[in-house]
Simulated scan of single mutants.
Amino acid sequence: MHHLTKCSLFLEFFLFESSPQPIAVGTGFTIQVINGTNYLITNWHNVTGKNAETGNSLSKNGHTDPEFMIVHFLKKDRINEWVKKKVYLIDENFNKLYLEHPRGKEIDVVAIKLPVYDDVDIHNCFDALTQQQFTKQVSDSCSIVGFPKGISTAGKLPIWKTGNIASELEIDHDERPMFLIDASTREGMSGSPVYCISKGETTFGDIVTMGHGTPTINFLGVYSGRIGTDIEIGRVFKESCIIEILRHHSHHPITQNRITSYTYIQR
Protein backbone atom coordinates (compact mmCIF):
# COMPACT_ATOMS: atom_id res chain seq x y z
CA MET A 1 0.00 0.00 0.00
CA HIS A 2 1.23 3.49 -0.84
CA HIS A 3 2.42 5.29 2.29
CA LEU A 4 0.46 8.44 1.42
CA THR A 5 -2.78 6.44 1.18
CA LYS A 6 -2.38 5.73 4.89
CA CYS A 7 -1.86 9.42 5.74
CA SER A 8 -5.25 10.79 4.58
CA LEU A 9 -7.97 10.33 7.20
CA PHE A 10 -11.77 10.37 7.07
CA LEU A 11 -13.26 12.99 9.41
CA GLU A 12 -16.81 13.30 10.77
CA PHE A 13 -17.84 16.50 12.56
CA PHE A 14 -20.44 16.44 15.35
CA LEU A 15 -22.22 19.43 16.83
CA PHE A 16 -22.80 17.95 20.31
CA GLU A 17 -22.06 14.78 22.27
CA SER A 18 -25.69 13.76 21.76
CA SER A 19 -25.73 14.41 18.00
CA PRO A 20 -26.84 11.22 16.20
CA GLN A 21 -25.34 12.23 12.85
CA PRO A 22 -22.37 14.34 11.76
CA ILE A 23 -23.10 17.79 10.39
CA ALA A 24 -20.30 17.38 7.85
CA VAL A 25 -17.51 15.10 6.68
CA GLY A 26 -14.08 16.03 5.45
CA THR A 27 -10.47 15.00 5.03
CA GLY A 28 -7.38 15.48 7.14
CA PHE A 29 -3.83 14.17 7.04
CA THR A 30 -1.12 13.59 9.59
CA ILE A 31 2.38 14.96 10.00
CA GLN A 32 5.05 14.55 12.65
CA VAL A 33 7.36 17.34 13.79
CA ILE A 34 10.96 16.95 14.86
CA ASN A 35 10.14 16.42 18.57
CA GLY A 36 7.87 13.47 17.71
CA THR A 37 4.53 15.25 18.17
CA ASN A 38 1.82 14.28 15.70
CA TYR A 39 -0.57 16.82 14.19
CA LEU A 40 -3.66 16.43 12.07
CA ILE A 41 -3.93 19.04 9.32
CA THR A 42 -7.27 20.07 7.83
CA ASN A 43 -9.24 23.18 6.83
CA TRP A 44 -10.46 25.96 9.11
CA HIS A 45 -13.89 25.72 7.51
CA ASN A 46 -14.07 22.02 8.44
CA VAL A 47 -13.52 22.56 12.16
CA THR A 48 -15.77 25.63 12.39
CA GLY A 49 -18.55 24.80 9.94
CA LYS A 50 -18.17 28.33 8.56
CA ASN A 51 -17.27 29.70 5.16
CA ALA A 52 -13.71 30.99 5.51
CA GLU A 53 -14.45 33.80 3.05
CA THR A 54 -17.68 35.13 4.58
CA GLY A 55 -17.87 33.62 8.07
CA ASN A 56 -21.38 32.34 7.32
CA SER A 57 -22.55 28.85 8.23
CA LEU A 58 -21.94 26.11 5.68
CA SER A 59 -24.83 24.06 7.06
CA LYS A 60 -28.36 24.28 5.68
CA ASN A 61 -29.52 24.37 9.30
CA GLY A 62 -27.13 27.15 10.25
CA HIS A 63 -25.06 24.97 12.57
CA THR A 64 -21.50 26.06 13.32
CA ASP A 65 -18.62 25.19 15.66
CA PRO A 66 -18.85 21.41 16.04
CA GLU A 67 -17.77 20.21 19.47
CA PHE A 68 -15.70 17.28 18.26
CA MET A 69 -14.78 15.15 15.30
CA ILE A 70 -14.44 11.41 14.84
CA VAL A 71 -11.20 10.46 13.11
CA HIS A 72 -10.90 7.06 11.44
CA PHE A 73 -7.35 5.82 12.07
CA LEU A 74 -5.86 2.61 10.78
CA LYS A 75 -5.62 0.03 13.54
CA LYS A 76 -2.07 -0.66 14.68
CA ASP A 77 -0.23 -2.99 12.28
CA ARG A 78 -3.32 -3.34 10.06
CA ILE A 79 -4.11 -2.03 6.58
CA ASN A 80 -7.85 -2.73 6.47
CA GLU A 81 -9.11 -2.24 10.03
CA TRP A 82 -9.99 1.09 11.59
CA VAL A 83 -10.30 2.59 15.04
CA LYS A 84 -12.50 5.63 15.66
CA LYS A 85 -11.06 8.32 17.90
CA LYS A 86 -12.93 11.32 19.28
CA VAL A 87 -10.93 14.53 18.95
CA TYR A 88 -12.38 17.62 20.62
CA LEU A 89 -12.32 20.93 18.76
CA ILE A 90 -13.52 23.19 21.58
CA ASP A 91 -13.41 22.79 25.36
CA GLU A 92 -16.18 23.25 27.93
CA ASN A 93 -15.56 27.01 27.88
CA PHE A 94 -15.73 27.12 24.07
CA ASN A 95 -12.00 27.73 23.74
CA LYS A 96 -10.49 26.51 20.49
CA LEU A 97 -8.42 23.36 20.69
CA TYR A 98 -7.08 23.71 17.15
CA LEU A 99 -4.21 25.93 16.05
CA GLU A 100 -4.99 28.70 13.59
CA HIS A 101 -2.70 30.62 11.29
CA PRO A 102 -1.61 34.08 12.54
CA ARG A 103 -3.87 35.55 9.83
CA GLY A 104 -6.87 33.62 11.17
CA LYS A 105 -9.57 32.32 8.85
CA GLU A 106 -7.96 34.16 5.95
CA ILE A 107 -5.71 31.11 5.78
CA ASP A 108 -8.10 28.15 5.63
CA VAL A 109 -5.76 25.70 7.37
CA VAL A 110 -5.53 24.48 10.98
CA ALA A 111 -3.37 22.03 12.91
CA ILE A 112 -4.65 19.82 15.73
CA LYS A 113 -2.21 18.25 18.16
CA LEU A 114 -2.93 14.54 18.55
CA PRO A 115 -2.48 12.55 21.75
CA VAL A 116 -0.42 9.38 21.87
CA TYR A 117 -2.56 6.38 20.94
CA ASP A 118 -1.50 2.80 21.67
CA ASP A 119 -3.92 1.06 19.34
CA VAL A 120 -3.57 3.01 16.08
CA ASP A 121 -0.83 3.84 13.59
CA ILE A 122 -0.28 7.50 12.75
CA HIS A 123 1.56 7.83 9.46
CA ASN A 124 3.72 10.88 8.80
CA CYS A 125 3.22 12.10 5.23
CA PHE A 126 6.68 13.72 5.31
CA ASP A 127 8.20 10.21 5.33
CA ALA A 128 7.14 9.63 1.71
CA LEU A 129 8.39 12.94 0.33
CA THR A 130 11.52 13.54 -1.70
CA GLN A 131 13.49 16.11 0.26
CA GLN A 132 15.21 17.39 -2.86
CA GLN A 133 12.81 19.60 -4.78
CA PHE A 134 12.17 19.10 -8.48
CA THR A 135 10.91 21.72 -10.91
CA LYS A 136 7.12 22.13 -10.97
CA GLN A 137 5.15 24.41 -13.24
CA VAL A 138 1.71 25.24 -14.58
CA SER A 139 -0.04 22.29 -16.30
CA ASP A 140 1.91 19.66 -14.33
CA SER A 141 -0.33 16.99 -12.85
CA CYS A 142 -1.04 16.76 -9.13
CA SER A 143 -2.76 14.26 -6.84
CA ILE A 144 -5.45 15.15 -4.30
CA VAL A 145 -5.94 12.35 -1.76
CA GLY A 146 -9.24 12.50 0.09
CA PHE A 147 -12.90 11.53 0.32
CA PRO A 148 -15.10 13.04 -2.44
CA LYS A 149 -18.68 13.24 -1.15
CA GLY A 150 -17.55 11.04 1.72
CA ILE A 151 -16.71 8.15 -0.60
CA SER A 152 -13.93 5.82 0.50
CA THR A 153 -12.55 2.51 -0.67
CA ALA A 154 -11.93 -0.77 1.17
CA GLY A 155 -13.34 0.64 4.38
CA LYS A 156 -11.98 4.13 5.03
CA LEU A 157 -9.08 4.40 2.61
CA PRO A 158 -9.06 7.60 0.54
CA ILE A 159 -9.59 8.17 -3.17
CA TRP A 160 -6.74 9.50 -5.29
CA LYS A 161 -7.93 12.13 -7.76
CA THR A 162 -5.77 13.77 -10.40
CA GLY A 163 -5.72 17.39 -11.50
CA ASN A 164 -3.35 19.96 -12.92
CA ILE A 165 -1.58 22.97 -11.47
CA ALA A 166 -3.57 25.91 -12.84
CA SER A 167 -1.71 28.99 -11.59
CA GLU A 168 1.92 29.98 -11.18
CA LEU A 169 3.36 28.46 -8.01
CA GLU A 170 5.80 31.31 -7.45
CA ILE A 171 3.01 33.89 -7.27
CA ASP A 172 0.42 33.96 -4.49
CA HIS A 173 -3.19 33.86 -5.69
CA ASP A 174 -5.53 36.44 -4.14
CA GLU A 175 -2.65 37.86 -2.06
CA ARG A 176 -2.54 34.72 0.07
CA PRO A 177 -0.07 31.80 0.07
CA MET A 178 -2.30 29.84 -2.26
CA PHE A 179 -2.40 28.55 -5.83
CA LEU A 180 -5.11 27.05 -8.05
CA ILE A 181 -5.64 23.59 -9.50
CA ASP A 182 -7.88 22.34 -12.29
CA ALA A 183 -9.51 19.18 -10.90
CA SER A 184 -12.92 17.54 -10.56
CA THR A 185 -12.90 17.73 -6.77
CA ARG A 186 -16.04 17.47 -4.64
CA GLU A 187 -17.36 18.13 -1.15
CA GLY A 188 -15.67 15.95 1.44
CA MET A 189 -12.20 16.51 -0.03
CA SER A 190 -11.60 19.73 1.89
CA GLY A 191 -8.43 19.29 3.92
CA SER A 192 -6.86 16.83 1.49
CA PRO A 193 -3.11 16.88 0.94
CA VAL A 194 -1.98 17.71 -2.59
CA TYR A 195 1.16 16.14 -4.04
CA CYS A 196 3.16 16.36 -7.24
CA ILE A 197 4.55 12.97 -8.26
CA SER A 198 7.19 12.67 -10.97
CA LYS A 199 7.81 9.30 -12.60
CA GLY A 200 9.62 10.38 -15.75
CA GLU A 201 11.98 13.19 -16.68
CA THR A 202 12.58 15.30 -13.58
CA THR A 203 14.61 18.46 -13.14
CA PHE A 204 16.49 19.07 -9.89
CA GLY A 205 18.03 22.52 -10.28
CA ASP A 206 20.39 22.18 -13.26
CA ILE A 207 20.28 18.38 -13.27
CA VAL A 208 17.79 16.49 -15.44
CA THR A 209 17.09 12.84 -14.68
CA MET A 210 15.31 10.53 -17.13
CA GLY A 211 13.49 8.25 -14.72
CA HIS A 212 13.60 6.80 -11.24
CA GLY A 213 13.28 3.41 -9.64
CA THR A 214 10.99 5.10 -7.11
CA PRO A 215 8.72 8.05 -8.02
CA THR A 216 9.81 11.39 -6.59
CA ILE A 217 7.15 13.16 -4.55
CA ASN A 218 6.86 16.78 -3.46
CA PHE A 219 4.16 18.13 -1.17
CA LEU A 220 2.23 21.06 -2.67
CA GLY A 221 -0.26 22.05 0.01
CA VAL A 222 -3.74 21.67 1.51
CA TYR A 223 -6.82 21.54 -0.72
CA SER A 224 -9.48 24.01 0.44
CA GLY A 225 -12.49 23.67 -1.86
CA ARG A 226 -13.52 25.04 -5.23
CA ILE A 227 -14.02 28.60 -6.39
CA GLY A 228 -17.79 28.59 -6.89
CA THR A 229 -19.89 25.56 -7.76
CA ASP A 230 -19.91 25.78 -11.55
CA ILE A 231 -16.19 25.66 -12.26
CA GLU A 232 -13.60 22.92 -11.74
CA ILE A 233 -11.02 25.24 -10.19
CA GLY A 234 -9.88 24.56 -6.64
CA ARG A 235 -7.78 26.37 -4.04
CA VAL A 236 -4.64 24.91 -2.48
CA PHE A 237 -2.94 26.63 0.44
CA LYS A 238 0.81 26.25 0.17
CA GLU A 239 2.92 24.22 2.58
CA SER A 240 4.28 27.40 4.15
CA CYS A 241 0.92 27.82 5.91
CA ILE A 242 1.52 24.67 7.96
CA ILE A 243 5.02 25.77 8.91
CA GLU A 244 3.77 29.23 9.92
CA ILE A 245 0.98 27.79 12.09
CA LEU A 246 3.29 25.45 13.98
CA ARG A 247 6.03 28.02 14.40
CA HIS A 248 3.50 30.56 15.67
CA HIS A 249 2.31 28.18 18.38
CA SER A 250 5.57 26.39 19.21
CA HIS A 251 9.19 27.22 19.88
CA HIS A 252 10.36 23.79 18.73
CA PRO A 253 11.88 23.11 15.30
CA ILE A 254 9.23 21.83 12.93
CA THR A 255 10.93 19.55 10.42
CA GLN A 256 14.50 18.58 9.68
CA ASN A 257 14.12 19.73 6.08
CA ARG A 258 11.88 22.14 4.24
CA ILE A 259 8.86 20.53 2.65
CA THR A 260 9.18 22.48 -0.57
CA SER A 261 11.35 25.22 -1.96
CA TYR A 262 9.00 27.83 -3.39
CA THR A 263 10.16 31.41 -3.59
CA TYR A 264 7.30 33.46 -2.19
CA ILE A 265 6.51 36.96 -3.38
CA GLN A 266 5.97 39.23 -0.40
CA ARG A 267 3.05 41.62 -0.72
Rank of each mutant, 00 (worst) to 15 (best):
H2E: 14
L4R: 07
C7V: 13
L11W: 00
L11V: 00
E12G: 10
F13V: 01
P20E: 11
A24Y: 04
G26Q: 07
G28S: 05
L40M: 15
I41N: 02
I41Q: 02
I41P: 03
T42P: 03
T42D: 06
H45Q: 02
N46H: 04
K50L: 15
A52K: 04
T54H: 03
H63S: 05
D65A: 07
P66A: 03
F68I: 10
H72S: 02
F73C: 00
E92R: 08
N93M: 12
K96E: 12
Y98D: 01
E100R: 04
H101S: 12
D108M: 04
A111H: 07
I112N: 00
V116K: 05
D118V: 02
I122S: 01
N124W: 02
Q131R: 09
S143D: 15
F147Y: 15
P148F: 05
I151G: 04
W160D: 11
W160K: 12
K161D: 14
A166I: 10
E170L: 01
M178G: 04
L180M: 06
A183Q: 07
C196Y: 00
T202V: 14
D206V: 13
I207Q: 08
I217G: 08
D230I: 10
D230T: 13
E232F: 04
G234S: 01
F237L: 06
S240D: 13
I245D: 02
L246V: 09
H248A: 12
H249S: 13
I254P: 06
T255M: 09
I259N: 10
T260R: 06
Y264N: 08
